[in-house]
Amino acid sequence: MADFESWWRERAKAAEKCAAGQTPCLSDVGVQTPVADYREMRYVSLDGSSQVARVIVPRAAGPHPCILVWHDLDRGTRGWFQLSRYVAAGYAVVHPAYRSWSGDLTAGWQDGPEGLKVARLVEDTLVACALARGLKGVDGQRLMTHGEGFGSLFALAAAAFAEGVVKCAVVNAMPAKIESAWREGAAQMAYQGVWRHFREQDPCAEHAAELFSALAYVDAAEFAALLPASCELLDGVCLMDEVAPPATQRALFDRADCKKQIVTYPKFGHERLNDFENRLLSFMHFGERSA
């Protein structure tokens, strides 16, 4: 797409300005450990809506690298106990919650990319990243993004357009190559809205070109193609995934033009993977990299 990069570049600039113009509210959540501080961060996104993210910052002397984590569609916001594991690796953690939406990828497509509800979630992502970079105790030049399934969209968008992101890890990424996924019969989770659209609104696919032209602006593969050379990608693909077609995931990986590695799981589907999480732990290591 000719204007994908410029369209999102403008929104990334607006997100930076939005973050710079506010002081996020960090409130106590009633969780305490000897090694980290736990807070809820409330902030304002580009459209003026209030958003929330979970924040954990190690108490050890910093600044610390920071991982931003996004969950899949069928899983809610991750708990504090689960998020605390990243602290053991020396990381601060920011886990943005999704704003309320229908779960329909096609919502608002008639108004082009400007109307897409999912585009607002990507904007929330860019603001959250800009705010994470400025948190006390965080090294703003050592950010990492991680997304599972649908969360991969936000991890890749942040890595492509937010400053300071040098590592990105995704697994079972979707939505990717949305039209190809539809043609392959994808009809679950992120693709359910597309399936319903053609069943209920456009049964002869007479307006398919217009729909997919709009949806391309929230296609994870498009963001992957813009990962900067300074970013490193770890991509996990399950070859028995019936939710996110493996061919579309592989196409996403192929479009990334940065240092990258792919891990394939022949006998796994759309699920959480202990092996990938072990690899993630090694991938998170910065070694002697300077800030």
Results as ranks from 00 to 15, higher is better:
Gly79Tyr: 01
Phe198Met: 06
Cys238Gln: 14
Ser213Glu: 14
Leu46Pro: 00
Ser6Val: 10
Asp72Gly: 15
Phe4Arg: 10
Leu234Glu: 08
Cys204Trp: 05
Ser6His: 02
Leu73Gly: 15
Asp3Ser: 14
Asp104Ile: 00
Glu271Ala: 15
Trp8Met: 04
Ala160Trp: 02
Lys13Met: 01
Ala220Leu: 11
Trp8His: 04
Gly90Val: 04
Phe198Asp: 09
Leu226Cys: 14
Gly147Asn: 07
Gln22Thr: 07
Asp111Trp: 07
Arg272Lys: 08
Gly115Tyr: 02
Ser100Cys: 02
Thr264His: 05
Ala53Leu: 03
Val44Thr: 15
Ala162Arg: 08
Ala229Asp: 15
Phe81Lys: 12
Gly21Pro: 00
Trp195Asn: 10
Asp3Cys: 09
Val165His: 03
Leu143Glu: 12
Phe276Pro: 09
Val263Pro: 00
Tyr43His: 04
Gln32Tyr: 05
Lys136Gly: 05
Ser100Tyr: 02
Ala205Asn: 08
Ala159Phe: 02
Val194Cys: 09
Phe150Ile: 04
Pro63Lys: 07
Arg289Trp: 10
His197Ser: 13
Tyr98Phe: 10
Pro96Ile: 02
Cys258Leu: 04
Phe154Asp: 06
Ala209Phe: 01
Ala158Leu: 01
Val55Asn: 08
Gly140Arg: 03
Phe154Asn: 14
Val171Pro: 00
Phe198Ile: 09
Ala190Asn: 05
Trp80Glu: 12
Phe154Val: 01
Gly287Gln: 11
Ala224Val: 06
Thr264Lys: 07
Val94Leu: 12
Gly21Leu: 01
Tyr91Glu: 06
Asp139Arg: 01
Ala20Pro: 00
Glu206Met: 06
Leu126Cys: 10
Trp101His: 14
Gly269His: 14
Glu5Leu: 07
Asp74His: 15
Tyr191Trp: 12
Met41Gln: 08
Leu105Pro: 03
Ala208Glu: 14
Gly76His: 07
Phe212Gly: 06
Glu10Asp: 09
Ala97Arg: 04
Arg272Asp: 14
Asp74Leu: 13
Asn274His: 14
Val93Phe: 03
Leu153Tyr: 03
Ala2Tyr: 02
Gly134Ala: 01
Leu226Gly: 09
Ala157His: 01
Pro246His: 13
Arg199Phe: 02
Asn172Arg: 09
Arg39Leu: 11
Leu252Glu: 13
Ala132Ile: 01
Glu232Lys: 04
Arg199Ala: 14
Pro228Ser: 12
Gln22Asn: 04
Trp7Met: 06
Asp219Pro: 03
Leu83Trp: 06
Ile56Pro: 06
Ser100Pro: 00
Glu200Pro: 00
Leu116Gly: 07
Gly30Ser: 03
Gly147Gln: 09
Val57Gly: 07
Glu163Ala: 15
Asp254Val: 02
Ser152Thr: 08
Arg120Glu: 14
Val138Thr: 05
His270Lys: 06
Thr77Gly: 13
Leu211Val: 13
Gly149Glu: 11
Phe4Ala: 12
Arg133Asn: 00
Ala291Tyr: 10
Val87Arg: 08
Leu153Trp: 02
Phe283Asn: 13
Val52Asp: 01
Arg39Met: 08
